[in-house]
Computed example of a mutant assay.
Amino acid sequence: MKTSFISTLTLWNAPRSGVARMQTDLASALTELNSSRFADVGLELGYRTGTSLDLHRQLAELDAQKERNGLASLRLSGTQTILDQVREDGEGFLALVAPGKLSDDSAAAITQEASSRLAALTAQLNGAAGGQYLFAGIDTGKKPVTIYEGTPASAAKTAMATAFQAAFGTSQGTQPGAAAITPAQMTAFLDGPFTALFTDATWSANWSSASNRNITSRISGSETVETSVNANAGALRQLAMAYTLGSDIGLSSLSKPTQDAVYTKIRDLMGTAAAGVTSFQADLGRAQTKTTEATTRIDIQKVVLTKSLEDLEGTDPAEVKTRIDTLKTQIEMSYSVTSQIRGLSLINFI
């Protein structure tokens, strides 16, 4: 027969030995009640933990893709808004130089309007969203277009004055030199030296620091779209050409027939530019639609994956609540027994 040593301390500590475990279980149960998820997923799932981790990874990738799509949508929306303004300004200016609207006194007003719209175009092309320049191509940290009118004179304005002086031996707006320019001479200048001021090389040297490459955004695992228009695009250059021509050719100093030659060139440039801007907006609109559809598909995928995770890691609230009540009762009983034992002493029975 085996005997064991009994003391008050042994009896006192016996109920307390299980309290720590029950308190740990209670904390885990409370966590499960609040999160509706196993407190220790690895312990509960065992070999299926890998499946849980894979589902979490897929959800994280979808969240990251949705955030990238949001940035792309912001860029597309901002670009569309600016192009709307650019197109409306262009249409308004084109209406001013329509043949039926012109008179002998139109030159000064058109010069002022062209100057104002050139400044507006520059500001629009330097527009930004989310800390990135929208028309800078992939070089989103660089302001894409320089200001034409400024102090000191911009490279573009200096190049215009130099080309005019070389072609006609006089400066813009001078009398009687500019008044002697014939329509044929002006047409030759506009189709030659003036157009040369807006070629790829001279545009990049005097006007633009934008990249020729537009931003391409991945909107899903297998789909990419262009989500920007850069300031080097032909239609935007043609707008700058038309406004520069109207504002800095010295319209008021030219003869009426020569003015008509200038207006004809402006109308040609504006008509082509308007069609180009509309085409840009159509392309961006398709990109917006694809981005929205991709984001919708991501939301659907997230719902499916979230449901799979809930089925794998989720707890039954009723079962957890019952477990919590049971643990609380056991802990209270343990405290009660411990309190009663503290009042006992073997000395009282000797």
Rank of each mutant, 00 (worst) to 15 (best):
T3E: 12
S4T: 14
I6G: 02
T8D: 15
L9N: 14
W12A: 04
W12N: 12
P15A: 01
R21V: 06
R21G: 03
T24N: 02
E32F: 04
S36V: 05
D40G: 04
R48H: 11
T49K: 03
S52N: 04
S52Y: 09
L53I: 13
D54A: 11
L55Y: 03
L55R: 00
D63K: 06
N69P: 04
L71F: 08
S73Y: 08
S73M: 08
S73I: 00
Q80Y: 02
I82F: 09
I82Q: 14
L83N: 15
Q85S: 14
Q85V: 12
R87L: 14
R87F: 12
D89W: 06
A95Y: 06
L96Y: 10
S106E: 01
A107W: 10
T111H: 03
L118G: 03
L118H: 03
A119I: 02
A123M: 12
N126M: 11
G131S: 02
G131K: 07
Y133I: 04
F135C: 13
F135W: 10
A136E: 12
G137H: 09
G141P: 05
K142P: 03
K142W: 02
E149T: 05
G150Y: 11
A153F: 00
T158R: 05
Q165A: 12
S171Y: 09
Q172N: 08
Q175M: 14
P176M: 07
A178P: 04
F189Y: 08
L190W: 04
G192T: 09
P193E: 00
P193M: 01
F194I: 06
F198Q: 09
T199S: 13
A205C: 05
N206H: 09
A210C: 10
S211H: 09
R218A: 11
G221D: 10
E223R: 10
S228F: 00
N230E: 01
A231V: 05
A233Y: 06
A233S: 14
A235R: 07
A242H: 01
D248V: 00
L251A: 15
S252E: 15
L254Y: 02
L254I: 13
L254K: 09
T258V: 11
K265V: 04
M270V: 04
G271E: 01
T272D: 11
T272C: 10
A274V: 14
A275N: 15
G276H: 13
T289C: 08
T291M: 07
T295I: 04
T296S: 13
K302F: 01
T306N: 00
S308R: 12
E310Q: 09
L312W: 05
G314V: 02
I324F: 07
I324K: 04
D325N: 08
T326F: 08
T326S: 09
K328T: 05
T338F: 05
R342I: 06
I347P: 06
I350F: 10
